[in-house]
Nucleic acid binder design. Structure first.
Lengths: 205, 205
DNA sequence: GTCTATAGAGGGATAGAC
DNA sequence: GTCTATCCCTCTATAGAC
């Protein structure tokens, strides 16, 4: 797509198909698969229901497309970064913390969406994610194991990931109760880009 | 309830109402509100659909009962423990890590269930959880602030909670991909009862 | 390609017998 | 209190005109 076309797209001159996909991203992500009605998606796109089926045949089909995108998005930063053979453990930690948190700030609903849909329908995802090869046996995990031989590297990795992702999963709770507002949340997460690497390095000593 | 009656209850001589509630706990927790059919609950209980409505009027009503229980369960350990004025920061950390992880091991689906339902329908929970008073302004938070004046105590608290809860949220992913089985998961979480307090204390220095 | 109208199934809820 | 049968609305999906 050319820059000119992208500009047009942003001004709501998307193709009908893209309008529906974009609407589906919004509605599925917000409500989850089961609570989403195809009518909601058509309405969000400003179109009628028949077009939905003309382009995507079924709710299930479009959901699979969106879900694939979202799983990809959640892993696309981290899997290559974990397996980069050309930087040190400390460099990986710094880079991932900054860039992953930035990505999550742009897509705050992503983790809870993906994780809750996997829980609701685990069968669908047996093949999608190659967790074992690209995450649990990654270069990063080997570097962790070398650095500290006393602690299972999976334990460190779970903590690293949890410190980044968990706040986004609890975000709706904080917002609903009015305990932490949007701006305060962003500030916290930006602080964490430096705090988390500092902490993880302490845990490695 | 007497011990004799409890014994009977465990032998599947529950009252009809309790059978339905128990079935609802299982099905709602596994599938979420939207994907659950009242027929699923009746079937799980080995009863017919009419009894469901006889005892609970509507799906929504029974869901609210179960959800209230589950939110309570998720917070009942932690809120009093956070506000116990009679122990030190270190004692709180040790106690919470052990007991909260034990509770989660007995109720592994609890966090993802509660958090995803809150996201799906935030309006319902504005009043339920008094996060601000009992968590974010707890005795524990004040103790964290005193111990280390350089770091926002909310940041430490988020990490503490995240390290305990996050593995349970990703559990379905690990299981589906076959990367970590049931027994290995339990072993990891039991290790974390000691690892997490050690780490948090490092982060406080 | 886009729309209106509608078929058809599913699922929450109730009537009424026992 | 428990059951079978069924109502009826909602939601997915399609037919068919333009």
């Amino acid at each position: 797509m050319t820059d000119a076309k992208e500009q047009l797209a942003e001004e709501n001159n998307l193709s009908t198909e893209e309008k529906l996909k974009e609407a589906a991203r919004i509605v599925f992500t917000k409500k989850g698969y089961a609570a989403t009605k195809t009518r909601d998606i058509a309405e969000e796109a400003g179109l009628n229901l028949a077009l939905f089926h003309y382009y995507f045949r079924s709710k299930e089909k479009l959901f699979e497309i969106i879900m694939m995108e979202k799983v990809q998005q959640l892993f696309s930063f981290i899997a290559p970064a974990l397996n980069n053979p050309d930087n040190t453990l400390e460099e990986k930690i710094d880079w991932i913390a900054t860039n992953y948190i930035d990505m999550l700030l742009k897509n705050p609903d992503l983790p809870i969406f993906v994780l809750s849909e996997i829980r609701n329908n685990p069968e669908r995802f047996g093949k999608t994610v190659q967790l074992d090869t690209y995450v649990l046996k990654s270069h990063f995990i080997r570097q962790l194991a070398e650095k500290n031989k006393n602690v299972n590297p999976i334990q460190l990795f779970l903590s690293f990931l949890g410190m980044m992702v968990f706040p986004f999963i609890t975000k709706p709770v904080f917002e609903t109760t009015g305990a932490v507002n949007e701006a305060a949340f962003k500030h916290l997460m930006n602080e964490r880009k430096l705090l988390i690497p500092k902490w993880i390095k302490m845990m490695l000593e």
